[in-house]
C-alpha cells in the first residue's frame, strides 16, 4: 500500500495530517498499538520538521506486510551538519515554532529513537530527505 501526503512549510494547522492517516491505516491492519505509536510519533516529528524549517515537502508511505517505509522529502534550507542536528537540544527553530510547542532540538533524535532505521541526506540550499523503516511485528 502506498500513500502520498503534501506538507506545507509554515502551516502548523495541517502538521500531523499524514501521521493521523497512517495511524488509522495501521490500526485497521491490527498492528500492535505500541509499534503504531513509535511509527506515528516519528512521522509526526518529521512533519513538524518540514513545517518548521522547509518551504514545502512530501511524505511517501509504503506499507508492506512486515514493515513500513516512510520517506519525508522537503525543499528547504537543508541541514549543514547532520551530526549536530542529531544532538538533543540543538535547534535552529524560530520563535514561532517554539510558540507551537516545538523547537527544543528533540525532533530528529526522537525520530531515530522511534524507528528501526533512519537515513538522512541533505543538501544545503536544496532540501532534506529523511527515510524511516520500522518492522510491523515485534
Amino acid at each position: 500500500m502506498e500513500f502520498n501526503y503534501e506538507v506545507e512549510g509554515g502551516n502548523f494547522t495541517k502538521a500531523g495530517n499524514a501521521a493521523s492517516n497512517v495511524k488509522k491505516v495501521l490500526k485497521q491492519l491490527n498492528v500492535d498499538p505500541k509499534i503504531i505509536k513509535r511509527i506515528v510519533v516519528a512521522l509526526y516529528e518529521g512533519e513538524v520538521n518540514v513545517v518548521a524549517h522547509a518551504y514545502k515537502g512530501n511524505v511517501l508511505v509504503d506499507i508492506d506486510t512486515d514493515r513500513i517505509y516512510i520517506k519525508i522529502q522537503d525543499e528547504g534550507p537543508g541541514i549543514p551538519d547532520i551530526d549536530l542536528a542529531m544532538q538533543v537540544g540543538y535547534s535552529t527553530a524560530s520563535a514561532m515554532v517554539r510558540e507551537m510547542g516545538f523547537g527544543a532540538g528533540m525532533g530528529l533524535p526522537n525520530m531515530k529513537r522511534n524507528a528501526d532505521t533512519i537515513d538522512i541526506t541533505s543538501k544545503v540550499g536544496e532540501g532534506t530527505i529523511v527515510e524511516l523503516t520500522t518492522k510491523l511485528t515485534s
Binding site: 502548523f12 502538521a15 510547542g101 526522537n110 529513537r113
Partner: peptide, 26 residues
C-alpha cells in the same frame, strides 16, 4: 513543550498544558 510529550512511553495518562493549539491535540 510538545516535544517532551512525544518522548513519553506511558499510557492512560492525562496531559496538563497551557498550550492551546491544534498541535496539542495532534
Amino acid at each position: 513543550l510538545m516535544s517532551d510529550v512525544l518522548t513519553l512511553e506511558s499510557e492512560q495518562l492525562v496531559l496538563i498544558t497551557g498550550l492551546t493549539n491544534m498541535q496539542t491535540v495532534r
